[in-house]
């Protein structure tokens, strides 16, 4: 797959504060990439640099073949973290106006607006002013206004924030549809479940630095594995199993953290060999959330 976006050793400094440090990553065409990190990790600063809204202090960015996002702004769709639209405009006019700024003729913009808004279940609200819409509806309109010009690269900054679970699901579907239609999606979030469900690849940021870039499965591998054991057990017996680094009571049994590289099968085999009274033995796959905590250093 060809690379549609690349950052090379990009840094951004605001006075004495370094918001982004030596950031490098790339995004392949047609992929869905999660840009993850806790609040203040440098995600929004990085996105602004990609769009050309802020210049990097050092480093190089290439987006859609251009060295400045502003040169290809008509080919990018952007939904900022803090978003809004004109309160007195109706959704159709608002979407058509934003599409117009990206070069879509007004009549065509309105046609696409109606089509996309109806597909999002907003057919009833087409003529209502934005201020009369619910927060979820308004966010859908904003997302539609970011993609109505059919961009090649869609950048969504915290698109799930403020949405209820039903609307979050709808948005996930919309992002998948965009990718199916050939668009490349880069979205930032600090809610790992969305990234886990949507992304082929994630870039993890912490304190302005990239701490991981790669497939979701690879990120998960960075997280420690745990065993869940139940039955007539004591903490010392569990602690003595091979590979177990730490034990803590959990529910009716114990939760044991495995040392890096330790295999759950070895612990299970030893438990049987030692005749431990085990009624439940589980070695769940680590979640992206666990990996996120470890990789961003938030477990300290």
């Amino acid at each position: 797959m060809s690379v549609i976006l690349s950052l090379n050793d990009v840094s951004k400094r605001y006075g004495d504060f370094e918001a982004v440090k030596d950031l490098s990553f790339s995004v392949e065409k047609g992929s869905i990439t999660g840009f993850l990190g806790p609040n203040g990790a440098g995600k929004t600063s990085s996105i602004r640099m990609i769009l050309g809204l802020a210049a990097p202090t050092s480093g190089r960015i290439e987006v859609l073949g251009a060295d400045d996002g502003r040169k290809v702004r008509d080919r990018i769709g952007f939904l900022p973290e803090e978003r809004g639209l004109y309160r007195k405009m109706n959704p159709v006019d608002a979407v058509a106006y934003m599409a117009g700024l990206k070069g879509v003729p007004n009549a065509e913009g309105k046609r696409r607006a109606r089509e996309l808004l109806e597909a999002q279940g907003l057919g009833e609200a087409l003529k209502r002013p934005m201020k009369a819409l619910s927060k979820g509806m308004a966010q859908k309109v904003q997302l539609v206004s970011a993609i109505a010009h059919r961009p090649e690269l869609v950048i969504l900054d915290e698109p799930f924030s403020g949405l209820d679970p039903v609307n979050q699901q709808g948005l996930e579907r919309m992002i998948r549809d965009l990718a199916d239609q050939g668009a490349t999606v880069l979205f930032s979030t600090h809610v790992m479940q969305h990234a886990e469900r949507l992304c082929e690849k994630v870039v993890l940021m912490a304190r302005g630095r990239k701490v991981f870039e790669g497939p979701v499965a690879e990120a998960r591998a960075a997280a420690p594995r745990y065993l869940v054991l139940e039955g007539g057990l004591d903490a010392a017996g569990v602690q003595a199993l091979p590979g177990v680094a730490e034990v803590e009571p959990a529910g009716g049994g114990f939760r044991a953290r495995l040392a890096p590289g330790a295999q759950p099968q070895a612990a299970l085999k030893a438990a049987f060999e030692r005749g431990l009274d085990v009624t439940r033995f589980e070695a769940p796959e680590p979640s992206l959330h666990d990996a996120f905590i470890v990789l961003t250093g938030d477990d300290r």
């Binding site: 769009l51 809204l53 502003r70 702004r73 990018i76 952007f78 939904l79 900022p80 803090e82 978003r83 809004g84 639209l85 004109y86 309160r87 934003m98 700024l101 990206k102 904003q142 206004s145 970011a146």
Partner: peptide, 16 residues
């Protein structure tokens, strides 16, 4: 008003 309504950042991604 545009700044308060958070429209300016979207506009700046669409026009200089």
């Amino acid at each position: 008003e545009e700044k308060a309504n958070r429209v300016l950042e979207v506009l700046l991604s669409s026009a200089s």
